[in-house]
Each structure stands twice: as structure tokens, then as C-alpha cells.
């Protein structure tokens, strides 16, 4: 029983980790309608930034958020403005896919060029301290991630529901042409949304860097799972991404423990393929047209 609870707790912690990485991705996916294959590399950049800033300033890694998140906002906004926006009118999806795949390849190798293939360890800042909750143990950093993920979901919901800009973002996602006719500058909304999505992953990076070693390929490791989470949760659904992440976290944790750690990915991707093929709108999505964001 105790083992079961521990595996359960591990699954939830892993789920929180996937959630915080996926929220930005689903936001971009749902609103800009672009599959950002470079999303993982934004995470990687964020983790390296955390590593570097922590080293330079000698501050607690969590404090780097005030630098990392704005920088990633700029990186995301620039990506949208200079790479995606010129391709928005492209006749086919493959053009945008290749653009972000190219960006991903370039960023991974840029990191390799600057930091080499060796891993970079950000100081843990006490975030690897075990915390006992009843019969299970988790790391304090993991709890932070869970809290941050929940806060992010609620915060984005409020932003999208209650503010004029948030409403404009939803309007653009639901009906781009009609939004233009309301006087909304659609391109600016896209740049803003891409920026926010990247800033979210910046937040994730500062929380993850103290727990996981950083390497040029770390993004690839996370991003495939993030895609699974986003599809599972229903594209563009922030709440769905959170729940989807928990589901994937649990599948990963339980299949790793009960089936074999080397086959975890088969379980996760198997679920992904089943969902994609049987219910492409995701477990919590409403329709395939991706035209809505339900906060």
C-alpha cells in the first residue's frame, strides 16, 4: 500500500512537471494554431539561463524568474513576429512545422556550441530536500512545481476571462476574421500570446533547473511528452492540459513501476496514439477545429 501511494505521489509530481511545461504549448497551439516544435528548446534555453544567472549573481535559482520569464517572453514574441507571422498565410501546415523544426535544430546545436555536450547542474537551493507527507516523500521543489502549475492555470484563466486583452485573445482564437472586424490587431495578439506561452515555459524552466541537470537535448525529452499532454487535454484547453498532464504522469509512474522502466515511453506514446486516432479532439476537447480556447 505504501509503495502504491508513493508511486501515486511520484505520478502526480511528474504530472505537475509535465503540466507546467505544457501550459505554454497548449496556449500557443490553441490560439496561434501553430505546433511549436521548438517549445522544448525554449525550456532548454530557460534552464540554461537559470543556470547562468544563478552562477553569475549567486542568487537562489527561483529568483531568476524575474529575468528568465521576460527574456523568454521576448524570445517567443520574436519567434512569432519574425518566423511564424510571415508564414501565417502559407497554404500548408508543413511550412510552419518545418520552420519550428528548423528553429529547434538550430537552438539545440547553438546550446551544444556554447555549453558543450556536458550537463550543467544548477544549484538546488534546497529544493531537493525531501518532504514527508503522511506515508509518502516528495521533494520540496516538486511541491513548488505543483503549486506553481495550479497557480498558472488559475492565473491564465482569470486573465483570459476577465481582462479586455484576455477576451481579445479568446476572440482571435475563436474567429480570427471576426476579431479583426472588431478592431483587434490580430498579429499583435499572436505575438503577445506566443510571448506569454514562452514566458510560461520560462517559469517552468526556473523551477525545473534546480531539480534536473540541463543539457542541450533536455527539451526534446520534455517536449514529446508535452505534445502528448496537449493532445490528451484537448488543444488549447489550459485546464485540459493540467488534467492531461496528471494522467500522463500517473501512466508514466505506474507503468514504470509495474511494467518496467524501459517501457514507460511505450505506454505513454501508446496512449497518445490511441487518443490521436480514436478521439483526436482529446479527452476534454470539444471539437477538432481547434477554434476555441476554453480557459
Amino acid at each position: 500500500m505504501e509503495t502504491f501511494l508513493q508511486v501515486l505521489a511520484n505520478g502526480l509530481m511528474l504530472g505537475a512537471l509535465f503540466a507546467i511545461v505544457s501550459i505554454g504549448l497548449t496556449l500557443i497551439f490553441g490560439i496561434v494554431k501553430v505546433v511549436n516544435f521548438a517549445h522544448g528548446e525554449f525550456l532548454m534555453i530557460g534552464m540554461y539561463l537559470t543556470f547562468v544567472v544563478t552562477g553569475w549573481l549567486g542568487i537562489h535559482p527561483l529568483y531568476t524568474i524575474v529575468i528568465v520569464a521576460p527574456l523568454l517572453f521576448l524570445a517567443g514574441a520574436a519567434t512569432q513576429r519574425f518566423i511564424i507571422q510571415p508564414l501565417m498565410s502559407a497554404r500548408d501546415d508543413h511550412i510552419q512545422i518545418f520552420a519550428t523544426v528548423g528553429l529547434s535544430t538550430a537552438l539545440i546545436n547553438l546550446a551544444l556550441l556554447i555549453f558543450g555536450a556536458d550537463i550543467a547542474n544548477t544549484p538546488s537551493g534546497g529544493l531537493r530536500t525531501p518532504v514527508e507527507i503522511g506515508p509518502v516523500r516528495v521533494l520540496s521543489g516538486q511541491l513548488f512545481i505543483l503549486i506553481a502549475a495550479i497557480a498558472l492555470v488559475i492565473g491564465l484563466r482569470l486573465f483570459l476571462q476577465k481582462t479586455q486583452t484576455g477576451r481579445a485573445i479568446r476572440a482571435v482564437a475563436q474567429n480570427r476574421a471576426a476579431a479583426q472586424l472588431m478592431g483587434i490587431n490580430v498579429n499583435r495578439i499572436y505575438v503577445l500570446t506566443f510571448g506569454i506561452g514562452a514566458a510560461c515555459v520560462g517559469l517552468a524552466a526556473t523551477l525545473i533547473a534546480p531539480l534536473y541537470p540541463t543539457s542541450p537535448n533536455i527539451g526534446t525529452y520534455f517536449v514529446l511528452t508535452a505534445f502528448v499532454v496537449v493532445v490528451l487535454g484537448g488543444l488549447g484547453s489550459i485546464g485540459g492540459a493540467f488534467v492531461g498532464a496528471m494522467v500522463i504522469g500517473l501512466i508514466d509512474s505506474f507503468s514504470g513501476f509495474y511494467i518496467g522502466s524501459d517501457l514507460r515511453e511505450v505506454a505513454v506514446f501508446g496512449v497518445f496514439l490511441l487518443i490521436l486516432i480514436l478521439k483526436p479532439s482529446g479527452l476534454f476537447g470539444k471539437s477538432l477545429n481547434l477554434s476555441h480556447v476554453s480557459p
Binding site: 520552420a99 528548423g102 528553429l103 546545436n109 547553438l110 551544444l112
Partner: peptide
Amino acid sequence: HALGLHGFVYGIVLVLVVLFMP
């Protein structure tokens, strides 16, 4: 000399081709 340089160039070329030579 420069691990990753050729991959970096590759990625950049891909983005540029997509942007300017679809």
C-alpha cells in the same frame, strides 16, 4: 573545433529556406 556548429547552420538554413524559398 565547434561541436554543434553544423547542426546550427542546418537549422538556420532550414528556417531561411522556409521563409524565403518556400
